[in-house]
Amino acid sequence: MSFVLEFENVTKEYRSFASKRRLRALDSFSLAVEAGEIFGFLGPNGAGKSTAIHLAMGFMQPTSGNGRLLGESFGDPGARRRVGFLAESVALYHRRAERLVRFYGALNGMGGTQLDKRAREVLEIVGLQDHANRNAGKFSRGMLQRVGLAQAMVNDPELLILDEPTSALDPLARVMVRELLIGARNAGKTIFLSSHLLSEVELICDRVAMLHRGKLARLGRTTDLLQAGGRTEIIVRAIAPSHFEGAAARDGIVSFSVPTHGQRAALEKVWNLGGEVVSVNPVRRSLEEIFLEVTAEPLSPLSKGVQ
């Protein structure tokens, strides 16, 4: 299995020069992102998501541990040539959108007609083709985010690292970005997506990691995490709801959930009572529920010591 992004036991501490206080933003963090997947990177504010991304991009040095980006150590400019990055708060120079995208492309070694063509292409992809000659300084936050996406894609990167790419976008633009990311994955690209929009992550991410207070709290395939409740919902008719604990009845339809390992016994009981089974489905949780569960977990003793 090839990994495009790997964190190996990475710890990052911020030290305050004046008070000598230490804040551990990442704590023995390990993670591996596989090629060709959309990887969701979740966590509450201050969990360490942006720190992890900035470490991967080489904007800062880990206190301990190390990592690799496209097979090279963090901070290697050669590896960054194959990466597209969009920061959480997009900050761009005030110049015409097309020139701006060309500037960032040129920094990646692109040039000539190839760059001109690609700049126009990516602006069209993000729906800014009609604003290509407008100064980005006059753009709305949503438009800036779209130019940010365009500059991230201008070099046709193998890996896209996106920190909150849709936070300022309207629903229509979000759908556009979602389709764009799915299209990129289908084209063999890898996307590392940090987002607070859990419904979006649920829709498009193949795998998800949840970070809480600098530690990896959950990691797995999105489908597995959503079905990991260990319960099954059974919907039946022609029986009284009183036979099953917590059952709800509506228009003659009775629904209840049981632990997955007890579903067989529950179904036999329904049949013995003369009931008819309508459906049996694993209970799906939402990422939001898992997110709330993770953030409610207490601090580990190690984290407490340094916060």
Binding site: G58, R80, A87, A91, L107, G148, Q151
Partner: peptide, 17 residues
């Protein structure tokens, strides 16, 4: 402060460059 440095150093640009 403007965070524009992130956009530049996210490209194939070394710090020395």
């Amino acid at each position: 402060r403007s965070r524009r440095i992130l956009g530049v150093l996210s490209k194939a640009v070394g710090r020395q460059q």
